[in-house]
Write a protein that binds this DNA or RNA. Structure first.
Lengths: 125, 125
DNA sequence: TTAAGTGTATTAGTTGTAATAGTACACATC
DNA sequence: GATGTGTACTATTACAACTAATACACTTAA
């Protein structure tokens, strides 16, 4: 369910955050579903429990999950607020990327071409 | 000519690299033009000379500049190789961003809309 | 020739973040 | 009561970014 690339520059806890967000966005994880427990996931991935906890805390803060002592960490029943925030953040990233393309003089036609090609093959993603 | 945001998560030397690339891409810096000297820029920005040197070394490596001991650091006469690499790297970044949009379920129409709006206002960038 | 200004190299030390390690506490469930 | 859950805390290690200080080689111009 979760996979860590130790060679990536992205911190492990960020990798977990990103993957959890994607699992929910792709509806593999649905509202009410439990995430692996802090300890079990730490064993599965071979990393320290504190690192998992750091990721889960951030997921709580982003209103994707609710963690309850003694029970576990669950995807929120209402994730509309999270999904809105996720899309907003991603659109901001996209706009920043496009502004760079413009400042680098990359023509719109080239960008459009790439965009359509990627969306055409969206099954593969 | 260069401005550093100390609050940014981006390392100072990367900020310098990015800004130099943009200055050349926007033709504010042209082939043959000198960059500020390591020492003068370090004083202007209030940072250590070594940090500037690290940025300039990377710019040399990316074939944007040529540094000559005793003379200075200059934009290469032939920057075609650099510009090609720059566009290639930026396209890769763009594709990664779009893949995330897809995995987050953001519709193509929304992305297209944003893209065209940004390119329509390209003067402002 | 000399002085000043260039890039370059080396070594050392400081700072901040990521991650680990170990322990302890509070809560829920059976 | 035992087990499994999230949470909290401190200490430690590892690494990258950055600073600091110094030295060297080269170019230019007085």
């Amino acid at each position: 369910m979760f996979q860590i690339d130790p060679l990536s520059r992205m911190p492990v806890y960020e990798q977990i955050i990103t993957q959890a967000e994607q699992l929910v966005a792709r509806e593999i994880l649905k509202p009410g579903d439990p995430l692996p427990s802090v300890r079990s996931l730490s064993i599965t991935l071979g990393i320290n429990p504190n690192t998992i906890q750091k990721a889960y805390s951030e997921l709580d803060r982003r209103e994707l999950t609710v963690s309850v002592a003694g029970k576990g960490c669950f995807v929120r029943k209402d994730i509309s607020s999270f999904l809105f925030g996720l899309r907003t953040r991603q659109m901001a990233r996209f706009e920043e990327t496009v502004r760079q393309m413009i400042s680098f003089g990359i023509p719109l036609s080239v960008v459009e071409n790439s965009l359509h090609k990627l969306y055409a093959n969206k099954e593969e993603a």
